[in-house]
Amino acid sequence: MNENTIKKPSKVKSTLTTLLLFLLIWGSAYKTDSTFEELFTGIPEIISLLREMIPPDWAYFSYITPEVLITIQMALLGATFGAILAIPLSLLASSNIFVSPWIYQTARFILNFLRTIPDLLLAAIFVAIFGLGLIPGVLALTIFSLGIIAKLMYEFIETIDPGPLEAMTAVGANKIQWIAFGVIPQIAAQFAAYFLYTFEINIRAAAILGLVGAGGIGLYLDETLNFLEYQKTTSIILYTLVVIMVIDYITKKIREKLL
């Protein structure tokens, strides 16, 4: 037998896929005016901007410290309120807690819906309702955190050991007792870990909410850029990066202890 008797598989499908991919890339590049020409003319601009940003304005660090602290506070409160609201919602979304698809599918739909709205957009809408300040920021982060924690939680709850649940059913517990003694002990540590994780994400989110007037360091970011004070911008960015990394490190250590 030689290779002529063995049929080579057709390449039509892979060729079409490649073609489609290139078409999509080309179309997207066209739509967004992304060309290499733009890139090459942009590179010197990027470099000169970076030059203007260096060195950071060291004196500015102490000036923005209060605002950085407020950013952390916003993130913490948002994560906390979000976590509290996530408890009932994640239980409702778990198919092993509430067996009726009507309940858990509705809860999941609400969760998916919440997660489609970006944080900055929520903030912009809350600013329109409540005016400038921290309150819209905290509210936006609350909704944002709720979406994250509740989704992670219900996915975790669905993997818990059914044994203790059966035991609670066997002793005749009502739904609340059943959850309190069968479910909560199994998920508490993971819940705390997800809360910390969401807090980390919130710090990043909180740092930019100020751009739409919802409080925190983002306001200064906008201001310094508008006044072309790029060295101060660098200070803000660096400060934020350091804070994020330090908090990531701390929460990571706590999470390791928890689990």
Binding site: N2, E3, I6, K7
Partner: peptide, 19 residues
């Protein structure tokens, strides 16, 4: 090379599994 590969598969008795 491709012929060689088919021959090798032939030698171990699985020429029809090439693809």
């Amino acid at each position: 090379d491709v012929d060689l590969a088919h021959d090798a598969l032939n030698r171990v008795g699985i020429p029809d599994k090439a693809y």
